[in-house]
Amino acid sequence: NKSRCTICSKLAEIRHEVSVNNVTHKLCSNHCFNKYRLAN
């Protein structure tokens, strides 16, 4: 079950899903999750 990561755009296994204003951001790693948190 692979999806495209919101941060790095890599097609990968999604580890984190963050839902903001009915938009789901898919994040493939802790690294991308941290980058997402810093950016938002």
Rank of each mutant, 00 (worst) to 15 (best):
N1T: 15
N1H: 02
N1S: 08
N1D: 15
K2I: 10
K2Q: 05
K2S: 03
S3V: 10
C5D: 00
C5Q: 01
C5Y: 07
T6Q: 09
T6A: 15
I7S: 07
I7K: 04
I7N: 04
I7D: 04
I7T: 08
C8Y: 00
C8P: 00
C8R: 00
C8V: 00
S9T: 09
S9H: 10
S9C: 15
S9Y: 09
S9F: 13
S9D: 08
S9G: 13
S9A: 12
K10P: 01
K10G: 06
K10Q: 14
K10Y: 02
K10D: 07
L11A: 07
L11W: 14
L11P: 08
A12R: 10
A12L: 05
A12F: 03
A12Y: 00
A12S: 10
A12K: 06
E13I: 05
E13P: 07
E13C: 05
I14M: 11
I14A: 14
R15F: 05
R15Q: 14
R15E: 14
R15H: 03
H16P: 02
H16L: 03
H16V: 02
H16R: 09
H16F: 01
E17A: 07
E17K: 06
E17Q: 08
E17S: 07
E17F: 07
E17M: 07
E17W: 03
V18E: 08
V18H: 10
S19K: 09
S19R: 12
S19W: 03
V20E: 12
N21H: 08
N21G: 15
N22W: 01
V23S: 11
V23A: 13
V23P: 02
T24G: 07
T24P: 08
T24C: 06
T24Q: 08
T24E: 12
T24K: 15
H25E: 12
H25N: 05
H25L: 05
H25Q: 12
H25Y: 09
H25S: 12
H25W: 11
H25P: 03
K26P: 09
K26L: 10
K26Y: 12
K26R: 14
K26V: 13
L27V: 09
C28L: 00
C28D: 00
S29R: 01
S29G: 09
S29F: 01
S29D: 04
S29A: 05
N30M: 13
N30G: 13
N30L: 11
H31W: 09
H31N: 14
C32H: 01
C32A: 02
C32Q: 01
C32D: 15
F33V: 10
F33I: 06
F33R: 08
N34S: 14
N34V: 11
K35D: 04
Y36V: 15
Y36T: 13
Y36I: 09
Y36L: 14
Y36C: 13
R37V: 12
R37T: 14
R37H: 09
R37C: 09
L38P: 06
L38Y: 03
L38I: 12
A39E: 12
A39W: 07
A39K: 15
N40K: 13
N40G: 07
